[in-house]
Design a protein around this nucleic acid. Structure first.
Length: 187
DNA sequence: CCCTGATTCGC
DNA sequence: GCGAATCAGG
């Protein structure tokens, strides 16, 4: 993909709006977050007020001819990152579904099996670069169950662990795959 | 492990 | 100029 003027403009815009490199890459399509970051640097568009890791100058990776294998001790952090989307004032199209958007991150007890997710993931490629709409980073392991009104600010996705091959967490999977209620003729 | 941006460097 | 690989941090 070329960095056309338009793409560069969009890059600048999104970057200035505080989107992360990966988010921008996702909307631009066809580029990796590294590409975005690289471009940002080349454009000298670093730092937009609040950069997460503001480690300007500390040390440069000296070209040590010797490989220095270091073992890092990782402390376990158990924080769930809720998938929140910065709702845009003008959402293109709302996925109409009747869900009582109150499925919080903590597997809350949902009254009854209400929601019937009509989530038709089309072959949807990249989200048509539109508003400063930024679907969060829905990775392969995050529950993609939408929560709340897409038109509202607090719209987000469940974000729970969704296992290896399911788009939803175990909880939402059950809701999603519930056979249209009692549709069986008991012999 | 997930994510973030920063830097380097071969192409 | 580009961006994968790598580094460094949360």
């Amino acid at each position: 993909m070329n960095w056309t003027d338009e793409r560069v403009e969009l890059l600048k815009k999104l970057w200035s709006e505080g989107l992360s490199a990966s988010q921008i890459a996702a909307q631009l399509g066809g580029v990796s977050r590294n590409a975005v970051i690289g471009k940002v640097h080349r454009l000298k568009l670093s730092g937009r007020g609040k950069t997460t890791t503001a480690a300007p100058r500390s040390k440069k990776p000296a070209p040590a001819p010797v490989t220095t294998p270091r073992s890092a001790t990782t402390s376990n952090v158990s924080s769930m990152s809720a998938a929140s989307v910065s709702a845009s004032p003008a959402a293109p199209r709302a996925t109409v579904m009747k869900s009582s958007g109150s499925a919080a991150l903590q597997a809350d007890i949902l009254a009854d099996a209400v929601a019937e997710p009509i989530i038709r993931s089309n072959e949807n490629v990249v989200v048509p670069i539109s508003r400063h709409l930024t679907l969060l980073q829905l990775t392969e392991r995050t529950c993609k169950w939408p929560v709340g009104d897409p038109l509202h600010e607090d719209f987000h996705f469940c974000g729970h662990e969704s296992g290896e091959s399911s788009p939803y967490c175990s909880y939402h999977s059950k809701l999603a795959f519930q056979p249209t209620a009692e549709r069986r003729r008991a012999r």
